[in-house]
Design a protein around this nucleic acid. Structure first.
Lengths: 343, 343
DNA sequence: AATTAGCACTCGAAGATATTGAGTGCTAAC
DNA sequence: GTTAGCACTCAATATCTTCGAGTGCTAATT
């Protein structure tokens, strides 16, 4: 168990190092207002803290630097929530302004604003579509060979895909197909679409259209070709300003991960709701071993959960990051509740 | 005027430097198969070429490096088109495969593949919409407060925007508005929409709907709020592998530009069609002063011109870059012609 | 007259050596 | 338990040396 003084020393070291990115020496600690004891005393405490694994040195005669364990302790036991400035609060609220009626825009905007406020990289993963329901399906022919399928969900999400119309498909069959689909599929959760089409709609099509095979094939092509983008990243370049990322190789491997939705999505998805902090090697991906990732979930409806995350160096302003994510979560939940109850 | 031998020396220096990124010395040049004279002779030529401004040294006893003027001369007078490997040809053709019916996808895909092939950054600027015509306008209500407007153009481009429905707008007015719009605006070039609405449609709305003011306001809100994204960038991280971008500050300023459509679009748009090569300080933006930008236009229809560009260090494999862009342009033009004639 | 061999010279890169100063750990005094 | 004092450590920085790839110039060769 740490003494009060040790705790205080650890806090000062983390705070100072987060700010300056330089190892913190005993003399500098002693200079702080809140510190009332001498450098020698502090040195003793630091030696203890180092033995316990909360601090480390960059070399034998350097000042101390928080270890990952030290950050962990700071996050779990020391840091206190920060009061955000009114400017920060305003900006966050602004990203939920009324004119933003689309989830996509809200996410994009939030990512942008949070990365501005924190100077870290913000990642927003859209909600999984477990419960999203199909509102309407439309097919708009463009020319003889191609048409566009437009899916609209009850959350206001619009998805469109163009596809080739089989050459020998009759116009009437196309129309019938669309009618059947709209009739049978409206209100159905997206996730069941595939199943429902395979079971029920298939027979309807077979019954009412002349060229079932073509219609069915077309349908599959139009609806199930590709996963839509669901990851919004903003402020990637902020990472470049951090002194720990002076190495171009590091930057490259990190950027490669962030640009790939497949790699990033599983990292962001967490089993349970709420906030999670992954410090350094707590991140399973090697390229992120000197980063901290803070994730927070937001939910719309019952089972739809999305994630927002901040990515920065382990030397992160944890209190600020957490407070800002917290603020955002609250606003987001409010907005979505209002939004959902209204419709 | 350069002698044949000087020309040959310049060519070897550019080719070698592009490959190795190291200053080229006379001994190394003499070792090349195609070179039949001694280092001393080459040194004399190099001294002349330097005096003429085509070469420079990194320090007084280093080998030579092409200057921007040297690259310019190489591009204008020396380099010969490269025959692409069948792998490269295949990959480019693949990005135009039949299933890609949407311009957006083609652009995204092309950007990706070209950056893979060249290891430079690829930027694709979508065509300006001067001539694109509105095919269909649909308005899909999501709930009491909001709806989504979907614009489909004759090029298969789909644009959607959600907007708030004024609280006191009657349902019937909304429907009437949409009907009027579809009737009057189909086939109209997007660029004239605004004008046509202000002149003609305005009166129709006034005549047939109860709450003209609301309908009109809604219309403006739905159609003219924001410019759609039109810039696709791929392979930004490729730049990180180039030795000339070891400096993080350089990277940052370059990334900042590439991430901003407002900054990038005017650079990419060129007055006239065809290929343009901007070497080093020929780029007006300071951050790009040690880059080369090669732009090529592609066109669909009569007046619609888009741009594709490769961005790399001035030490670029010009022959390859030009050949690949050339290949792509040809394919793109073909594809679009076929596409347009069919509809 | 053009080309080439020969040679002194230049200068960056890489390694070795000295200097400085911020910081530590330990011991003894308070 | 706390602190002053002091010897010690080591990264950062500067200075010097060595090495070699490269040059420019001059004189010899073709």
């Amino acid at each position: 168990m740490l003494t009060d003084r040790q705790l205080q020393v650890l806090k000062v070291i983390v705070d100072d190092f987060v700010e300056t990115a330089q190892p913190v020496g005993s003399r500098n600690i002693a200079k702080k207002e809140e510190i009332t004891f001498s450098p020698a005393t502090i040195r003793n405490d630091m030696a203890d803290l180092e033995e316990l694994g909360y601090l480390s040195k960059t070399h034998s005669s350097s000042g101390r630097v928080p270890s990952e364990k030290g950050y962990r302790y700071y996050v779990d036991n020391i840091m206190s929530p920060l009061k955000l400035s009114s400017r920060e609060v305003n900006q966050i609220q602004h990203s939920f302004s009324e004119r933003m009626m689309e989830l996509e825009r809200v996410m994009q905007n939030s990512a942008h604003i949070l990365s501005e406020l924190t100077k870290y990289t913000t990642l927003v993963l859209g909600p999984q579509v477990y419960e999203t329901k199909l509102k309407q399906l439309q097919i708009v022919p463009i020319n003889q060979q191609s048409a566009i399928a437009i899916l609209i969900t009850d959350t206001g999400h619009v998805e469109h895909r163009s596809f080739a119309i089989p050459a020998d498909l009759e116009q009437s069959d196309l129309e019938k197909t669309v009618n059947i689909l709209n009739e049978r599929l409206s209100g159905v959760p997206i996730i069941y679409l595939d199943h429902l089409i395979k079971s029920e709609v298939k027979y309807l099509l077979q019954k009412y259209t002349n060229d079932f095979e073509k219609s069915y094939q077309l349908l599959n092509q139009a609806l199930f070709t590709e996963q839509p983008t669901n990851l919004y990243v903003s402020g990637k370049t902020n990472i470049l300003s951090q002194p720990e990322f002076a190495d171009v190789d590091k930057i490259r491997s990190l950027f490669n991960i962030m640009e790939s939705e497949e790699k990033m999505a599983p990292i962001l998805k967490s089993e349970d709701e709420g906030m999670h902090i992954y410090i350094g090697h707590e991140n399973k991906i090697e390229a992120m071993n000197d980063c901290t990732l803070i994730t927070a979930t937001y939910s719309l409806g019952e089972n739809q959960v999305g994630t927002i995350a901040l990515l920065g160096p382990t030397r992160m302003d944890y209190a600020k990051a957490v407070s800002i994510l917290d603020m955002w979560s609250g606003q987001m939940t409010n907005t979505l509740k209002k939004w959902f109850n209204e419709q």
